[in-house]
Write a protein that binds this DNA or RNA. Structure first.
Lengths: 205, 205
DNA sequence: GTCTATATTTGGATAGAC
DNA sequence: GTCTATCCAAATATAGAC
């Protein structure tokens, strides 16, 4: 058993490497982050890194594993409950999305995703399946229930989902860019709510 | 006067460098594109590059200059004419956006933009002003005219513009990613039209 | 304007002592 | 598991001949 009795977390070297790498990759991308910089950021020599990871790519893959790990998940019942209340569903979804946008860890991950999206085929495929398809699936389910219950005008649930999701993504992108330069995002942060309001008025019966 | 009598274009070494760099930067990003690769792609030695450009960054900046050069422009009169016909305005705008999305040169530029967006503050600022603000301005003008003429329900023109633009951007992003892997985009290319249809139905009186 | 040659730095990775 | 020492490849950039 490890000494976890104290409140202070004991951070292993491996964890330190992951944390430093996460920060550096999210700031400069894969290519521009040298193992030297990672090592010096951790406070060890380069050679010591290789006791924990096979090579640089191994470090990146370990870090990148988390990019799609916390897509907020909704159970079928949760979707149904919220969708029956119409706008509540959209609100819940958008607020989860907003939370992710402002969450420090998710922000780093989103940055790595953006930087490496065009250099890494696997990342592109995961973006399509985890970021896009998964979201579309959950949203479609909600919209379908709303149509069944006559809460919204009937149309293609997938199309509605696409319309709803695309704006959420764009807001997130803008906020991420602006926060990167430490500029205030107060005017943008209400966009999520505005989007929900507009969208709901567009589709409701 | 140059020998431009023949139909064959005489491409100077400088132009060759720009073309090769454009392609390489758009495929691998700034860091991963070495001056060596550029030189060998052009068919000259590295040292010869320095007769045309001060350094690697100079090459990049010259290439990057074009990124925001062809934002389709609408004159005030064009906006007014189209906006008075309601949906025609949205259609015109979306089709211009679609054209850009599938234009080879603009596609390369969009890729460079995406790759370097988080590494280059100037690019971020230009993205916000040229890609976002400029589009919002033109769209707002159109929506404002539509409201004045009672074609659409009255609301905030900027908000409508944001909603309309964000989906266009998302479609473009998806298509760019998919085309990069040479996957067919037939199912996605009609998204522009679907978006216009949905959006118009949402706002019209 | 292009070439060869070369300087210099940086980057990824390994061997072997402690 | 970390260190020193070292290797080798790749990258940016310059000097000077042609």
């Amino acid at each position: 058993m490890q000494e976890n009795r104290t409140t202070e977390k004991i951070i292993s070297t491996k964890e330190k490497i992951i944390n430093s790498s996460k920060r550096l990759f999210s700031e400069h991308g894969y290519k521009a982050t040298s193992v030297r910089k990672i090592a010096s950021d951790v406070g060890i020599r380069e050679s010591a890194l290789y006791n924990h990871f096979k090579n640089k790519e191994d470090i990146f893959l370990t870090v990148a594993k988390d990019i799609f790990s916390s897509p907020f998940s909704f159970s079928h019942d949760e979707i149904k409950d919220a969708a029956l209340k119409g706008k509540v569903f959209l609100n819940k979804y958008a607020m989860q999305y907003k939370l992710l946008t402002f969450d420090k860890n998710n922000e780093s991950m989103f940055r790595i995703l953006l930087i490496e999206l065009l250099q890494n085929k696997e990342l592109r495929e995961q973006f399509m399946s985890e970021f896009h398809d998964k979201n579309i699936k959950v949203l479609s389910e909600g919209f379908f229930i709303m149509m069944q219950n006559d809460l919204i005008r009937s149309s293609d649930p997938m199309m509605l989902s696409y319309e709803f999701l695309s704006t959420l993504f764009y807001i997130r992108l803008q906020i991420t860019l602006i926060r990167y330069d430490s500029i205030s995002t107060t005017s943008l942060s209400t966009q999520f709510e505005k989007h929900v309001d507009f969208f709901w008025e567009s589709i409701r019966k």
